[in-house]
Every structure is written in C-alpha cells, then in structure tokens.
C-alpha cells in the first residue's frame, strides 16, 4: 500500500538524520582545542616523577577508554554501539568514575516532566483563548489579549523565571522557587515545586500558540463550509469547536511539535534558575566540570528525543486530516 511506502520513506529519512546527528555529537569531543584528555584529567602540576607517572597512566587509561587513538569511523562505531546498549560513558573525576547513564536515568524524567507539563499548560490555556479571540476578532477583548500575548512572548524566559522565582517564590512565598520533589513523595508537593518552572516555560508558548491558532481560525471561519455549518442551525459553540477548530489546528500541531526544540532549550535555562535536577542542570555541571564525554551523551540524548518527537508529529499529521492521508496514500 502506498501509505506504507510513504511511511517507509520517512523512516529512512529518520535513520539518516539520526546517523548524522549522532555523528556530530560523537565528534564533539575531538573538536576541543588541545588534547581532550588533558581536559578530562586535571593536570596535577608536580615535579614528583611518581605523581607524574600516575597522571600519565591515568591519561593513557582514559585515552584508551575513549578510543582516542583510533580512527574516527572506528571510534564512532564503538561509541554508537555503546550508546545503543545504554552505556553513555563515564564521568572522569579526580577520585572516581561514575557512569553517565545513572545521571541520565535520574535527570531525564525531571526534564521530561517539565517539558510535558509546560506543553500541556500552554495548550490548555492557548486553545480556548485562540478560539474565543478568533470568534470575537476585532473586539476589545481580542485586541487586549493580542497585545498581552505579544508582550508576553517578548519577555525572555530567564527574565520571567527570575522574576517569578523572586517575587512569587521568595517575596510572596506562595510557591517554592527552587528544588524538586519526586511524584512518589507526594503529588501535591511535586506539582507545587514544578509550578513556577512550568509557568515560566509555558508562558512564551502560550502567546505563540494562541496567536497561531487565532490566525488560522480567523481564516477558517471565513470559509464556505463554516457558513454551511451555521446555516444548519447548530449552535455557534458547536460550529467553533467541532467544525472550525480541527482544520485550524494543523499548524498548531506542527509548531507544537517543532517547538519541542525551544522547550528543550528553555528547560535548560529554567532548570538552572529553579535548581531542578534535570538534564539542563546536568549539562551545566558537565560544562563546568569539563566533562565532555558526559556532555556528548546528554546532547545526543536530547537530539534523539527531538528527532523522535518530530517524526511522531509528522505521522500524526495523517491522522488529523484525512485529506493528507488520502494524498499521501495516492502519491
């Protein structure tokens, strides 16, 4: 069936993109100026030959570990093999080496929670606002909402985060401004701690989604089939939600999928501001600690997440609009 062929083509593209992306992240460590091993193993300046010897051995061990002497394709293959099996490399600290995988296991869920909550909040607020402002396009409510949205999306997320953290968190004390509580320790507490970060991350998205939906809805509401639906005598609410919303939501769907990239970036900043133990914080710590192996793995994980989300959005497209399903199946 042709639909399967179209899907197959997309899977192929997916594989290609994944390959190139992982290639890039695997190469990161070689791009540092100077010898990466010197960065990972802190130089202990000493004249003591014994200490120098130990340091040299450590460096050699690390070099072998990372396969830095091997040609790049071989190193990439090793890296990829390890990665797929869940071995994300190690942290090279002065006293110990911890597997990065542990960190990812603990940090990734936190970041995912933050992004998912933010996306949900953004959609839950933006969709009704978009529908109502489109329905009352030109009214004072519409103009006021649009202006507010515009202002909101012009505020950098870290600025908003800092202000919320201070004024709501510290000054008013309504919500905690830093830290994280695991859901198993109590859902209410979990959400209380996630509240300000979620709002910060969602704020700009609300504005973007609302304006997007409004713009598409206003166009859709002028189409003939909306007039036809109205002429059947059904309520305006039904016309809006059951007839107008669905065709207008396509762009919103695409953008909310593509937006995951912005969400990921935003999550990094938000986690830093609100001290959430997510991937963002892990990356920050890795950079500060010069743990480039760990950095590589984090970047790879985030990139793959992003690619998979985009792919899913692309496939979901077909479900929403039967015309596209039909067009793809017959093309």
């Amino acid at each position: 069936m042709n639909l399967a062929r179209a899907l197959g083509k997309r899977l192929l593209a997916l594989a290609l993109v994944l390959f190139l992306v992982t290639l890039f992240t695997a190469a990161l460590i070689s791009m540092t100026p100077g010898d990466p091993v010197d960065l990972l193993v802190p130089l202990a300046e000493s004249d003591n030959p014994e200490i120098q010897q130990t340091v040299q051995e450590q460096k050699d061990a690390v070099r072998e570990d990372l396969g830095l002497d091997e040609p790049f394709p071989v190193r990439y293959a090793h890296w990829l093999g390890d990665f797929v099996q869940g071995d994300f490399g190690k942290y090279y600290r002065t006293n110990a080496t911890d597997p990065v995988g542990d960190k990812i296991k603990s940090a990734l869920p936190v970041s995912l929670q933050l992004m998912v909550y933010a996306q949900i909040l953004a959609l839950v607020v933006a969709i009704p606002l978009g529908v109502v402002t489109a329905y009352r396009a030109g009214s004072r409510f519409d103009r006021a909402t649009n202006a507010s949205a515009f202002g909101l999306l012009s505020i950098p997320n870290f600025v908003l985060g800092l202000f919320l953290a201070y004024y709501v968190g510290v000054f008013l004390g309504w919500l905690p401004n830093e830290g994280y509580r695991h859901p198993s320790d109590g859902l209410v507490e979990h959400f209380r701690y996630m509240a300000l970060p979620t709002i910060t991350l969602a704020a700009a998205q609300i504005a973007v989604y609302m304006r997007l939906l409004r713009s598409d809805m206003v166009q859709t509401l002028q189409e003939d089939f909306i007039q036809m639906a109205r002429s059947k005598g059904i309520s305006d609410r039904r016309v809006l939600w059951r007839h107008a919303l669905r065709p207008s939501s396509i762009t919103l769907l695409t953008v909310s999928g593509l937006n995951v990239g912005t969400l990921i970036g935003g999550a990094l900043v938000v986690e830093r501001i609100f001290s959430l133990p997510g991937v963002g914080r892990a990356i920050f710590d890795a950079i500060n600690g010069r743990q480039y192996v760990a950095l590589q793995s984090f970047v790879a994980v985030l990139a793959i997440l992003f690619v998979m989300v985009n792919f899913t959005v692309d496939v979901l497209y077909t479900v929403i609009d039967p015309r596209i399903r039909h067009a793809r199946a017959t093309s």
Partner: peptide, 17 residues
C-alpha cells in the same frame, strides 16, 4: 428546520474532514 441554503461551490462548502 424551516429554511436552508445550498451554496455555490460544494467543494468548499462541505466540511472536508
């Protein structure tokens, strides 16, 4: 129920989805 309208272009007047 009492009055109804038939529109000009059936392609755009019927809900495509």
């Amino acid at each position: 129920a009492e009055m109804a309208m038939i529109f000009q272009d059936p392609m755009t007047s019927l809900n495509p989805v």
